[in-house]
């Protein structure tokens, strides 16, 4: 029997092209496995082989999404895969989004199943879970050793045409698909059993988790922007030169509050980025490219805005836990309100 054909999608980092300075490379295709593909090869064994690897820079993909999807899918299709693997992307936001977008395109256009791997907080999960079996992984590449066998095992199961158990049984993130089945107990009995387990403090699994709709209604517009006090907040890691608070380049454990009174322009001498998730060259040359202090100062002088708030707040949004980001923003917002700020411009990289 011939081996099943698998095509693997990875980013420039795992594709061994380079780090952030190479995040702008367009898609390319190599025969056979590359990087984590070698580990998959061991798990897939004699039954399946990675016939080709498509590699694309994370920034190139994110900035040219439609073109990227089309090009990558075309490259994948040329190798006639029985299954496509994307990632694993762990908690890397751009990479997870790319892995998910490729999965969507492959699923819709080629009708080929896709296996991916991500940390549950990766934005790619919410956006694309419907189109791939996304195995739940740890939040960074140290989890590769666990992720690859789990993803490989699931890939073989799908290739063999075996029926899949529930997401919990198989270790992937729910796609939101409901399957009918005949339960042994009727619904009323199952519900009461669950309630009894809950009352006893025992573990139980709901059959229908409530969807989480965490949306916030927009606030009313600023009535007169020429009178408003505007504050700057960024997840792009702009800090005074030397990073005095030692904000971490990824998984930031804190945020900083910095005085910009009397500063008309951020320069290479005064400010830099602490962010480790994008090529820092441009922000280090001129941090206004991320935090537009120069033009807001001009607009303040021209009376286009009331004033630019004396302090800006910065953290590094790079694999940072959602719970941390939420807490930082709660604290920041409370201070801004106390200081009489009317509106906020938040920039992200």
């Amino acid at each position: 029997m011939s081996k099943f054909r698998v095509v693997h999608y990875i980013n420039q980092y795992f594709g061994q092209i380079g780090g952030e300075e190479k995040a702008h490379v367009p898609p390319s295709c190599k025969e056979g496995p590359v990087g984590p593909g070698m580990a998959f090869k061991a798990v897939l064994g004699e039954e399946a082989e990675i016939v080709a690897t498509v590699i694309c820079g994370d920034s190139w993909f994110a900035e040219n999404m439609e073109e990227a999807k089309a090009t990558v899918v075309k490259m994948i299709a040329q190798h006639k895969p029985d299954l496509v693997i994307t990632g694993p992307a762990f908690n890397a936001g751009r990479y997870g989004t790319a892995c998910g977008a490729v999965a969507e395109a492959v699923y819709k256009e080629l009708n080929v199943p896709v296996i991916s791997g991500m940390y549950p907080e990766n934005p790619g999960v919410d956006m694309y879970r419907r189109y791939a079996l996304i195995v739940e992984t740890g939040d960074n590449a140290a989890a590769m050793r666990k992720a690859v066998p789990a993803m490989g095992k699931l890939a073989l199961k799908v290739l063999r045409g075996e029926s899949l158990g529930t997401p919990q049984e198989e270790g992937y993130i729910s796609r939101g698909i409901r399957k009918n089945y005949f339960a042994e107990e009727r619904g009323s009995k199952r519900a009461v059993d669950m309630l009894v387990a809950k009352l006893k403090g025992e573990e139980f699994h709901t059959e229908y988790p409530m969807p989480q709709f965490d949306r916030v209604e927009p606030n009313p517009a600023v009535a007169d922007i020429t009178k408003a006090r505007i504050a700057l907040v960024t997840s792009g890691g702009i800090v005074p030169k030397g990073n005095p608070d030692h904000i971490e380049s990824s998984s930031a454990s804190k945020y900083g509050k910095y005085d910009i009174e009397g500063i008309d322009d951020l320069t290479a001498e005064t400010h830099q980025t602490a962010h480790g998730g994008y090529d820092p060259v441009y922000a280090n040359q001129d941090a206004d490219r991320v935090l537009p202090v120069d033009v807001l100062r001009e607009m303040e002088k021209e009376g286009k805005i009331g004033s630019l708030h004396r302090y800006y707040y910065a953290t590094v949004g790079n694999g940072t836990a959602v719970a941390s980001a939420k807490r930082y923003a709660e604290e920041i917002a409370a201070e801004l309100k106390q200081d009489g700020v009317d509106a906020v411009i938040l920039t992200s990289t």
């Binding site: 907040v233 949004g317 980001a325 923003a329 700020v341």
Partner: peptide
């Protein structure tokens, strides 16, 4: 972060 700032009652624009 954008959402929490909005939730606190401040109008916020996300530039990204």
């Amino acid at each position: 972060m954008v959402k929490e700032i909005e939730r606190a009652g401040l109008p916020v624009v996300h530039m990204c």
